[in-house]
Design a binder for these strands. Structure first.
Lengths: 150, 150
DNA sequence: GAATTTTCCCCACCTCTACCCACAATTATA
DNA sequence: TATAATTGTGGGTAGAGGTGGGGAAAATTC
């Protein structure tokens, strides 16, 4: 069994741009570790993604194996790494998300946090609505592929 | 778990050409060691690279294994070694980077410091933009290869 | 050996972070 | 249902971090 997130919740950035991580997610993110450390980065969709630190670390270890004499690899690792921010909740369970990440996701005040299996997604509500509206067509072929794994 | 750098931050050289190493990177660079010693050298890209001393040492050990009867190897090791400068932060967490290294990276006043897993990169912002813009094409084939390790 | 330059320690200042406390709202428990 | 515990949010404040600059010590040059 994997540690998995589920559900969503709605929050607000406070005056100081701090974001409360919902308590249930917070515990999942950090495991039993009381440090509440995790990694936030840009998602493939216009949202932010938060990994438990252990998840991120596995990826980092793998990227270390890439041949750094190849320019492509250096470029990829650089891009991947510079957007990944290691965050720690304060004693109230809040984190300060860097401005450039908030801007990337178009987050102003209101925020939707979605648990997606082994990571969290952090969305601006409007962006999320639009994104969901532009319904990606899930056709028969797609479900046929899915049926192999579900 | 590895000590790994992530994220980036922006700094300025002060009047005396001193560069503040961001506190979070500083701690990672030097491990538990309070001496804040690390090694800076020319990167493979037009930037400077800073290794924790232990990381640099591993590389040095590996280079020792090269066959020194081969001219190419001697030339490479010589170039690599003469550009590697051991630096120590002052009590304010700043280092004085030699002029020839600043020139190599085209650094004038503003600086971007990027954490890349097991080392730091130090860039001139404009150079970095151009370098990122000249997007090394990361095509589908590339990501297909990547998916094996991520 | 004197003069100049370079390096590095120290102090000062301001900003930003993260701790602390507070409290309302919600959820859990008796 | 009443009470207690947890959670989300607000805001004050101490301290850490980044930057600037004076001046002593060390190194270099003349």
């Amino acid at each position: 069994m994997i540690t998995s997130f589920a559900g969503e919740s709605r929050h607000f950035l406070d005056e100081k741009s701090r974001l409360s991580i919902p308590a249930k997610f917070r515990r999942w993110l950090s495991g039993d570790d009381a440090e509440y450390t995790f990694v936030v980065t840009k998602g493939s969709d216009p949202c932010l993604v938060a990994y438990p630190y252990t998840e991120w670390d596995i990826r980092a270890e793998n990227l270390l194996k890439l041949d750094h004499f190849k320019k492509k690899n250096r470029a990829f690792v650089r891009a991947w790494s510079r957007n990944s921010i290691r965050l720690k909740c304060d004693k109230q369970g809040r984190v300060l998300i860097p401005q450039f990440l908030l801007e990337f996701a178009g987050i102003k005040k209101e925020v939707v946090i979605i648990g997606v299996l082994n990571y969290l997604e952090i969305w601006d509500p409007d962006t999320l609505d639009q994104h969901a509206e532009s319904k990606i067509p899930l056709d028969d072929d797609y479900f046929e592929d899915l049926s192999n794994i579900l």
